[in-house]
């Protein structure tokens, strides 16, 4: 609904909008900035926007100490693994619901979403016990499974809304031209479905990377990802701000960058196609 306005007004609007946006973004910016300071200037009062002694030591120290690479690698394996596994299970389901809808398809989708409303804390004990008994506790496999199940309804829903927009006339045309089911899937449907699958994948990697209940409660040491690492990163007296900031920056940077690329699909995806 943008309308033509005078330049003076536009300057005013732009200044206002940018001020608000920068204010919202400021904590992220400040964390990144602090990660390059020395511990002394990180806690300087009044706060220093420009420090005299920029350094990369914090990154080196965090990376070298405390097994940071292992936490990082666990996060990668768990978020990517659970998303891929979820896609394998969800693609056929979403596909058939979009192209061969039955009377109950809508109910089924609603039921799937309702499983997400079960509070995770409510089933913490059974999950904990099952994981202990089956040897899945504190393993990456266990967390891949748990996060896959947690995000499966979202994956099915997102794929469903994307697949539904593929016109079924195209399928009929391909069939009339004598394409077999296999050819139909490989040459006609897949190319049209790939953008939807890609954005579903991106968003679910983000959700899984940022998950902070199962990743904290179902791990101790071996499989603990970055969420557990940061949650346990506590030391008083403020002598660790620069290192905390470096660790935080490393924890959020990959997802922040992925997120910037997929922000356009975020709205569509997370509202299950209800807002476009």
């Amino acid at each position: 609904m943008a309308r033509a306005v005078s330049t003076r007004r536009k300057v005013f609007y732009t200044a206002a909008a940018w001020s608000v946006a920068l204010l919202i973004f400021f904590p992220v910016f400040w964390t990144i900035l602090t990660s390059f300071k020395t511990e002394a200037s990180a806690v300087a009062s009044p706060p220093q926007l420009f420090s005299a002694d920029w350094t990369l030591d914090n990154y080196a120290e965090v990376w070298g100490r405390s097994d940071y690479p292992r936490f990082f690698w666990n996060s990668v394996v768990i978020s990517v693994g659970s998303t891929l596994l979820g896609l394998i299970i969800a693609i056929p389901a979403a596909w058939s619901m979009a192209f061969v809808p039955g009377n109950r398809t809508k109910d089924l989708l609603m039921w799937m979403l309702s499983t997400k409303m079960m509070p995770a804390a409510a089933v913490l004990i059974p999950m904990y016990l099952i994981f202990q008994r089956t040897g899945l506790f504190d393993t990456r496999t266990g967390l891949v499974l748990a996060l896959m199940l947690m995000n499966l309804p979202v994956i099915v829903w997102m794929l469903y809304t994307y697949f539904k927009e593929i016109p079924s006339e195209i399928l009929e045309a391909a069939r009339m031209d004598g394409a077999s089911l296999g050819k139909e899937i490989i040459y006609v449907l897949t190319p049209m479905a790939i953008p939807g699958i890609a954005s579903t994948m991106l968003l679910n990697i983000i959700l899984a990377w940022n998950e902070a209940f199962w990743t904290i409660t179902l791990t101790t040491v071996n499989a603990a990802p970055l969420s557990a690492f940061i949650a346990s990163f506590s030391a008083p007296q403020g002598l660790f701000y620069a290192k905390l900031s470096a660790a935080s920056t490393m924890a959020i940077a990959p997802i922040l960058i992925l997120g910037w690329f997929s922000q356009k699909q975020l709205v569509r995806g997370l509202t299950f196609g209800a807002v476009k």
Binding site: I252, G259, Q263, L266
Partner: peptide, 22 residues
């Protein structure tokens, strides 16, 4: 839009920890 959306991509423990400490 990119500036405004950024906090959404910060994982909860990090968001909580930078607000609490910094």
């Amino acid at each position: 839009r990119i500036l405004v959306i950024s906090p959404f991509f910060v994982m909860p423990p990090v968001a909580a920890s930078i607000w609490e400490n910094l």
